[in-house]
Structure formats: C-alpha cells, structure tokens
Design a protein around this nucleic acid. Structure first.
Length: 748
RNA sequence: UGGGGUGUCGCCAAGCGGUAAGGCACUGGUUUUUGGUACCAGCAUUCAGGGGUUCGAAUCCCUUCACCCCAUCCA
C-alpha cells in the first residue's frame, strides 16, 4: 500500500488541479501570548509542510490583535520554534498589526455598504441580546443608525473620543442565526492599551474574526488551515470576504483536530498557570510539552517532525499516547548518539585480585550503528556498578551479578562476586569480587558464559555529575488541573558517576548512558565544574516490565450497554402515508423513510404515476433520490426519468449496478436514462458463454488468490466478482457472474 | 434543547460499493558483550448500535447512541 495523503493535501491537490489557484500559500498564524507547544509544532508541520510539498510559500504571521495579552518575548519564542524545527517562513515575519490601516478601511467600506454598524449597548446587554443556543437573539436599537452616523461614530472611536466599552463595531448579519457566531459578530472594540508593536497609535482593535480572514486575503493565502474549534467561525470568515466583494482569488478555511497527548496539558491557560505558579521552572522546563521544553530536554527537531508525521491529520478529536513520541526520539537517537557508561546509583566493588590500572579502548557505538569512534576507558581495582545490577537473592530470570552468577563488565572482564559487605542495618555497602584475567573483552579465552554485561566506572577516574530525571508531569492520563500533578516528576541525582571521557572529550551533547537511556548536556546549567545532564528518555526495559509489573489491574472496561432512544412519533399525515405504503407491499423501513419525508413521498407518488412498480421505485427513491434531495441543490432529473430507469431495471435490461451508474450520469449531465444506456452501451450481459472467458482470465491472472480462496479464505469471493465485473465494464450480470464463479472456484 | 463536527484494534490512522493499509503499544521467537537495536511471527470475520438498499456495504439510505465545539468587547 502506498502512502496515503491527508485530507488537507487532497484538498490542495484538488484546488490546484481545478485551477482554483495556481500556487499554494499557507500561513502559520499564532497569537504571541504564550510559548508554543507541540500542538503548534503539528500546525507548523502542516502549514510549512504543505507549502514545501506543493512548491508554495508559508508565511509566519503574528495574530497580534489583542494588545492586553501579547508580548514581544512570545514573538521570539515563536520564531525560535519555527526555526528550530527547520522551517523558513517566506519573507519577513508578518503581523496582523501591519494591516491595521487596511483592515480599518475595510471596516469603513462595510459601514458604507450598510453591512456594519456601531452598537452602543454595554457588554452585559450585548450578551443578553445575543440570546442562547435555543433562543434567537434580538437586534440592538442602535443597528438602525444611519450610515452617516455610523461612519462618524467609527471615526470618532478611532480618534479616541470614547472610553473602553462605550461602542463597538458589529457586522449586520442575523441575530437569529442558528450559528451563534453569526449573531452580528463584533468587528472592532475600543481598547486604550499599549500595543507591543503599534504602541499608542490605535485605540480600536479588530477582533479575530475580522482581522484573520482579511489578513489571509491581504497575504494572498489560499488555504487557511486552523483547528476544529474554529469551525463555527468559518461562516463569518466567508461572510466578511463575500460581503466586501473582494477581487478573487480569496482564501478558504479548513479545519483539523488539534493535538492532544496523554499525561500532559496543552492549553495555553494551563501552561501559563504552571509557569506563573512556579509548578515548573519556566517555559523551557523539560517536563513541559512546550517546544522550548523539548529542546531543553534534548529532543531533536527531527524526532518532533517525525512524530507529527506519524500521528497524521484528521478531524477526530484524539489523544495520542506519549509512547509514540518517546518512540520517535529513541528511534532518532539510536542511530546518532555515542554510548557511554554512567552509574546512577553506585555500589562499590573491590576487585581483590586486580592490581594497578589499565586503559581499555572502547567503541562509542555498538556493532549495529555504522559510526566510528572510541575512547579510553580506565579500569582499576575499585569500581562502581549500578546497585540494581547486583542481587543477593535473585529471582528466576535475573541475568545480572549474584553471589553465584558471574557477569561481564561491559568492554572489560568477567567478574565473580566473592563477598557481600553490609552495614549494621543490613544494607549492602560493598562487594568483594575477583576478575578473570583471561576474559578480557575481545580476547576472552576463559570459556565462561555470562548472561549479561553490565556498565561500570572506575572509582578513581569517574567524574561526579548531576543528572536530572524526569517523570511524567501529571499522574493521570487525562489531567484536568493542578490536583493531577505528579509530585515526583523531577528527581535530581547528584551522586551519579560517569566515565571521564564524556567530560574531557565532549564529543557530543547527547549520549546514551548504556542500558539506561538518552541524556543531554543541559545547555544552560552545564559547567565544567558541575556537569548537568537531562534525561531525555529511557531505553525500553523489558526486564522491568517482566519483573515489576505483577499483572497490571486488568481493568477490562465493560462495554457500555447501548441505549436505544425513542423514535419521534409520526403525525397523522405521516401515519396515513405509512399505512398506504405498507399496504402496497413496501417493507416497513422503506415505507417509514418515505412516509416521514414530505419531499420524498411526493417524489415517490409522482414516479408511481409513470410506472406501476412500487417496490423498485420506493427502493431507488428512499436511497438514491434521498441522498440528492439532502444536498438541497436543484435536481437534474424528474420523476419521469426515474420511472424510465426503474422500467429498464425491472425488465432486466440493466443490472442494479448499472442503474446506479446511470443515475450518477443523470445527476451530472441531466441526460435521459435511455440515452445514457444507448450511448454507452450499458446493456447488461447475461450470456454465460460471454462471461465465462472473463472469469477464466481473472482466475489465470490471480493464481495465488485462487489458492487462498480454496484454502478457506472465502472473503476473496467478492474480489473475484469485482474483478470480473470490472473487466466486463460493469455490464456482466452479477447474478450470473456469482453463479459461474462459485461453480469454477469450488469445483475447478 | 438549536447549530456545527466526529465515531474503523489499547492509542493514532488509511479506506470514498468488490481481499479491513500502516505506525505506536502489546505477545512470542532469532541475533546481540546494552534485558537496547535489528529481524521474523502474532495481534479487527469486522468498522458506535439497530434496520434497509445491493449479487456484494466500513463505504449508499433511515434511525438510535456517545463524545467534542459554539451564548469573551479572547484567539
């Protein structure tokens, strides 16, 4: 199966192919009022990705229409994010505020056209007048102001003659619109506030719904891609551009589902709360799903982009498993990063039969990573191993060091435990061990088989580092508020010991600490005196899974019982129709469908006048015609046309498959059924002598499917029927085809 | 309750009347001086439920249910 395209790309291709646009222009339009998170990364990948794929351009535009929440520091963060991800915006960074003069002119024009008015209701009244989802709103008395008065007021609003909230400019649309957004939406509000770019030049600011579509238009954007919650706003988007009667081409809005990831939050409000409340250490806290956070943690842009590609683009609200993101960063780093040894929880081991010290040449990369490079690993009498790599009473399946089980020291020798030393509390404080001189890595003649190799560092040569270990920020998969925060999301380990080359050679900033995970030299806090590493992500650990998970709570959620709701009762008229339909032999379902729909039933009645074939007509009307009627577009066919089609169907001139094809053509061209059948030679073929060779041909072409079918895969039956039908140009009588195929497949 | 959307494996997601793609997760096995990686195998007789149309339905029709968005002078 080839790669499938998402619905946005499909739409772009369609628009390019139809000539609607000659080039594609997209834009990434964030509001600079917070740090971008991985949801923005998804949007960035979509907008810049589409522009790249279709040789178009993508603009970076700050949607800075609300001076009270926006700031230039967020602009920088946004630019950083796009750049870090590896995208280049077209030309300069754009700002909606650049277009304020033009947008104001458009507002004046709308007023002149009588399509916008200055309202002087207060905020509370406006809310009240808007009505509710079930009740229509009422229009303000101020909507009757003359164009001259509106023009005057708007100009004085702009000049700053009024206080905040005294007036607003509204579109004159429909206060009883079912879409609440269309109830005379606000276009401009007065805000005597300092804007981070335009300063005090303006005291009225356009609302999102007015500024956004116009900004898109001004930039020549073709596809204005946003998230699902703006679906209702699309009507305003279209209204504004239509009302202004702008010269084409104009942009169209398309919506996709925003990204959700479990165990974290993505809303700006909640992120801001975490940062401002000190629950995390700034916007770039590695536990945050912000781009800055991932960057600080050590994620690569490649891994984030790959993640965005993997999760796809669709319209279903979804919550992606963090495991998918973790897979992406592991997958990326596995091929790139040097392996080194670091002991996080040291247990001292004294090798009693080793004296002096030596340096072991050790490759930075495992055999399956095609990269070159090695470092010198000091080895001596005293080493540290990971505390959890030794067990005095090990369970079945434990591969590491025990009093009776030797283990290989990675890159070095095999070690056998001789004595366990404990403190007064019984805690293990040290191991006495011996090494096998003839077991050196690469030159092992000892013949000893070990079950695993563990990491270690030389006590004398190891360096102290700080390691910051991160757990998920929230303890529940769908966190709501601060109460869901994981209190143990950050562990600072200051007693970790690392092999010296990492500090002295610094061949990279990201490493795999063998058997533990991927780590990143913190770009801010790392100093030579005090090296600091962030844990990016752990390695997969199938041993931990096996040993620690003693049957996770099965939590087999019983499937919720499906409750069948009541069907709306029929009124008397519908009941009468239903009765008469069932009496004439229609099945209850079809009779029900027709009876409940005035338009359908009258179409059915009209068709019946031309040909007396109730069942066939009813089926085609209740199914095919119903679909067309739903579209609320003018019909290109009449009851008589349908009657003609039914007659051919009843007489066996055409099969039901052909009937659908003919109906399709009727829809498109308005041709008469007979003419369609004649001109395309669609008469059904029922002669076995004609059909049989077709079947033979298909069977000969697909021997493995024949074998599979005969081995029991009866699903394949449909495949053969489909192929034969296709080969016959859709004309073979399906009943005959079925019969013949069945005979050949089962007895041939 | 009006309007707008969405329901395909544990999580994403293709599919557009003719063999239910793919990724993550999971489960076995092989390789391995990382319990990593890589490789092999397994993992939806069924597409939210119920009907209908059709030789054939995840796809078309009817209907029910569930979830999300909309009543900021936010975006």
């Amino acid at each position: 199966m080839s790669e499938s395209k998402d619905f946005l790309r499909l739409k772009v291709e369609e628009d390019l192919a139809s000539g609607k646009y000659t080039e594609v222009i997209t834009r990434f339009p964030p509001e600079p009022n917070g740090f971008p998170h991985i949801g923005h990364a998804k949007s960035i990948c979509i907008n810049f990705g589409i522009a790249r794929d279709y040789a178009g351009q993508c603009n970076l535009r700050m949607d800075d229409t609300n001076p009270t929440t926006e700031d230039t520091k967020y602009v920088e963060a946004l630019k950083d994010a796009v750049t870090w991800l590896g995208f280049n915006w077209h030309g300069k960074v754009r700002y909606a505020s650049d277009y304020f003069p033009k947008i104001y002119d458009y507002a004046v024009q709308l007023v002149k056209m009588g399509k916008a008015y200055v309202d002087s209701l207060n905020e509370e009244e406006i809310r009240e007048y808007r009505g509710s989802v079930t009740e229509a709103g009422r229009r303000s008395v101020y909507a009757n102001r003359s164009i001259e008065e509106n023009l005057d007021l708007l100009e004085r609003m702009k000049k700053g003659e009024f206080k905040d909230g005294e007036h607003v400019l509204r579109a004159k649309i429909d206060m009883s619109a079912a879409n609440m957004k269309m109830r005379d939406p606000l276009l401009y509000r007065i805000r005597h506030a300092h804007h981070f770019r335009t300063g005090d030049e303006w005291c009225i600011y356009p609302m999102y719904d007015f500024a956004h579509c116009l900004s898109d238009y001004i930039e020549g954007v073709t596809h204005s891609i946003c998230t699902l919650e703006f679906e209702n706003n699309r009507d305003i988007y279209d209204w504004v551009l239509d009302a202004l009667e702008l010269t084409p081409p104009r942009p169209y809005q398309h919506e996709f589902a925003r990204l959700g990831i479990n165990y974290t939050v993505m809303s700006k409000r909640k992120l801001l709360e975490l940062v401002n409340g000190g629950y995390v250490n700034g916007w770039d806290d590695p536990r945050l799903p912000t781009i800055a956070g991932y960057k600080r943690r050590g994620y690569t842009p490649e891994s984030i982009i790959n993640f965005c590609e993997q999760i796809g683009i669709a319209k279903a609200n979804s919550m992606v498993d963090v495991a998918q993101l973790e897979f992406c960063i592991r997958d990326d780093l596995n091929q790139k990063v040097p392996r080194v040894m670091c002991v996080l929880d040291p247990l001292k081991v004294t090798i009693e039969n080793y004296e002096g010290e030596e340096e072991i040449e050790a490759s930075y990369y495992p055999h399956d990573v095609p990269k070159e490079g090695s470092r010198k690993l000091p080895f001596a009498k005293e080493i540290y191993i990971e505390r959890e790599d030794f067990m005095e009473n090990a369970p079945e399946g434990y591969y590491r060091l025990t009093p009776s089980q030797p283990v290989r020291l990675k890159h070095a020798y095999i070690l056998t435990c001789k004595e366990v030393i404990k403190d007064e509390n019984g805690a293990i404080v040290e191991l006495k061990a011996t090494y096998h001189p003839d077991s050196k890595s690469g030159a092992d003649t000892s013949g000893i088989k070990t079950k695993s190799a563990i990491h270690w560092v030389s006590a004398k040569h190891a360096k102290h580092i700080e390691v910051r270990l991160y757990e998920r920020l929230y303890k529940v998969d769908a966190p709501d508020g601060l109460e869901d925060l994981n209190p143990d999301s950050l562990h600072v380990n200051t007693h970790a010991l690392i092999e010296p080359a990492v500090i002295s050679e610094k061949i990279d900033v990201r490493f795999q600490f063998e058997r533990q995970g991927y780590f990143y030299a913190d770009p801010i806090d790392y100093t030579d005196a005090k090296p600091v590493f962030n844990k990016i992500v752990g390695l997969k650990d199938s041993w931990a899974k096996k040993s620690e998970a003693p049957k996770n709570t099965p939590k087999v959620e019983a499937k919720k019982a499906h409750i069948e709701g009541d069907v709306a009762p029929m009124n008397d008229e519908e009941k009468a129709r239903f009765e008469s339909y069932t009496k004439s032999g229609l099945n209850a379902e079809i009779a029900n469908t027709l009876a409940r729909d005035e338009k359908l039933s009258s179409f059915y009645d009209a068709t019946l006048l031309h040909v007396n074939s109730p069942t066939s007509i009813a089926n085609i009307v209740a199914n095919e015609v119903a679909r067309e009627l739903k579209k609320e577009l003018p019909l290109h066919f009449t009851a008589q046309d349908v009657a003609e089609l039914v007659k051919m169907l009843d007489e066996g001139v055409i099969s039901s498959k052909i009937a659908k094809e003919v109906f399709e053509v009727m829809l498109q061209t308005g041709e008469k059924p007979h003419a369609i059948v004649e001109s395309r030679g669609l008469k059904q073929i029922s002669d076995p002598a004609v059909i049989e060779p077709l079947i033979d041909e298909i069977m000969a072409k697909n021997p493995e499917n024949v074998a599979k079918y005969q081995a029991g895969n009866t699903n394949l039956f449909g495949f053969f029927v489909g192929q034969v039908l296709k080969l016959s140009g859709g004309k073979a009588n399906p009943n005959v085809v079925n019969e013949l195929i069945s005979k050949k497949l089962n007895h041939g």
